[in-house]
Design a binder for these strands. Structure first.
Lengths: 329, 329
DNA sequence: AATTCTGTTGTTACCGATATCAAAATCGGG
DNA sequence: CCCGATTTTGATATCGGTAACAACAGAATT
């Protein structure tokens, strides 16, 4: 930068102004400086800039696992909005472990990120303390927690699960089973179960512990879960899989075993991925606003960081979802 | 840091040493400093550290699109290895556009990343120039380019495509069609086509332009492409889809139209994702070392950055792939 | 014409760490 | 017990920018 200043015959301060607040510099200076910048091929040093101004254009994002198609839509929404404002994304995986998450938060804070996006809504007390102390804006977006850290952009897992279960009930299914990922350290799973149970109650069905299943990740888990419930409760007539991979795995297993869907058993899913629309039968599911979540998260963060919109502190954005009725129910 | 130094009654330099080169400090000092660090809840400022030391623990990664399951495995490999060494990942999407990529490279360079990982192997001349000038290590890992920028960790798209086509030939298929994504600005597609053509030649089959198809992304594109080739060349007996989404889409279309697979037409795919193993019939495909690519990329970058392993400059790692024979062929 | 205001540019200090080299403490051997 | 070698610690400059305020010129006001 010094080189540019010398070449243009101005002070470094003027160079800095041309690059950051061009309006405050006369036309003539601006051109002289920009020419020098081009001639030298000068690249500003963001580290120095951030250190000096105590402002950062980096946002830290922590997801449970990168290789999960449902997060990627959110990441894309985030990334596209942030890029437009010249912000960068730092991404890390917590592996569904709050302690790991805390560690990553620490690393991000020491990188002085301007904001933080957390998919999980379960945090260690130390993590919460560190975030509070840092004072940077945070958005949680995997669920709508009881006690938000700061801002929230999400949909309600409980409401979505409730809506789908009610939908199945209204279609006339009487023995509706529910499958989700293991719910320890996963309040999304817990809330989905709550929604399911609330809907059963509303429908006047009795809950049956044999019809509430938990399993691991992957298509194989979906296959296992449908086989398990068919075995233990043969009269089951619908299976609501709270996860799109589980639902797909369940469908494939039904195809292999020649269980007609929805004749023998109906299937419903959570999250609308391309796959569910293209299998036959196509699978009834919930369309969740994954991309929108990323977009809104980015916007609200930028408002806080750039415009200092302090009135947004603690705001909760509850985005809409939709039941998509297809052939499988 | 000043506060910590004062509290421990030492100089900031000693604090810095305790944190970065604990071996060079006496046991007593170390404990005094660490206590002060804990009491104050001190978080080092990485920006300041990087600026001062001119070293960075951030790696920039540019992928064409984040929401593509095949990249996520590579990202995971990268992320896991980097995390262990305290490195961070900055991720951005180029949207398959070299100009966009150049822009992102510029941003990353001004953030002074310690290394760069590019999935694409097509770059603008300016991008190449900027990278050269910056002197930071770079890994390309989407393909094995003719003229690498620096280091390469990948498999050969041409060889993989050749291997699968030969496999189909050896199984006795005589009219093998080939489908890929549009090949403009996509040397992966181009190389896969080359491999296919080379194998046809080797097998003594004549290439037929009606059996070489290009299409867009998504399951619908796979459906479209299989319908198209069945229409224009009814005697086709195998379709090699150079992309796992295309193959899955093609299979679903065959199921809808009741074209028996592999009886009426055989299907082969590129990349081994969970889905291809679980559909019925399961799909013959290539297992590519996606995760390994990320892992090796991270390792080789860290060697260059931490150990200054200059002999690795320009090295090319050609990882192995494997043909997975399944029910669809 | 003197005074105030406005807009542009420059000066200086500082952001929070590390590199470098000098100073002080420790150590072993004669 | 002294001296040089070795280890440990500290003082200072610096990394590359920006904040804050000062200086200055020309326009507007009185």
């Amino acid at each position: 930068m010094r080189d540019v200043a010398v070449r243009a015959g101005v002070s470094t301060m003027t160079v800095s102004r041309v690059l950051n607040e061009p309006g405050k510099v006369s036309e003539e200076m601006r051109e002289r400086v920009l020419t020098a910048v081009r001639e030298i091929g000068y690249l500003p040093n963001h580290l120095a800039g951030s250190l000096s101004s105590n402002r950062s254009t980096t946002i830290g994002l922590i997801v449970p696992s990168i290789d999960n198609s449902i997060y990627t839509q959110t990441v894309k929404g985030l990334s596209e909005v942030l890029k437009r404002s010249g912000f960068q994304l730092m991404i890390a995986e917590s592996g569904y472990d709050p302690n790991e998450e805390e560690e990553l938060i620490t690393v991000f804070l020491s990188h002085r990120v301007g904001g933080l996006v957390l998919h999980s809504t379960e945090h260690t007390p130390q993590a919460i303390e560190k975030i509070r102390k840092s004072g940077i804006p945070v958005v949680e977006n995997g669920n709508i927690p009881k006690e938000p850290l700061d801002m929230v952009v999400s949909y309600s897992n409980r409401d979505a699960s409730y809506a789908m279960t009610m939908h199945l009930g209204r279609l006339g299914y009487r023995r509706i089973a529910f499958a989700s990922l293991y719910s320890v350290h996963n309040d999304r799973s817990q809330d989905r179960l709550k929604g399911y149970l609330a809907a059963l109650k509303q429908l006047g069905h009795d809950p049956d512990p044999r019809m509430v299943l938990e399993t691991g990740r992957g298509l194989a888990a979906g296959a296992e879960v449908v086989a398990r419930v068919m075995q233990s409760v043969p009269e089951v007539d619908a299976l609501f899989c709270a996860g799109e991979v589980l639902a797909a795995g369940a469908l494939f297993e039904c195809q292999r075993r020649n269980w007609s869907v929805p004749g023998r058993i109906a299937l419903a899913s959570f999250d609308d991925v391309d796959l569910l629309r293209h299998v036959s039968p196509s699978i009834t599911t919930l369309r969740l606003p994954r991309y929108d979540i990323g977009e809104r998260t980015a916007r609200i963060l930028l408002s806080r960081i750039i415009d200092g919109a302090d009135h947004l502190r603690g705001s909760v954005v509850d985005l809409k979802f939709e039941v998509i009725q297809r052939e499988s129910t």
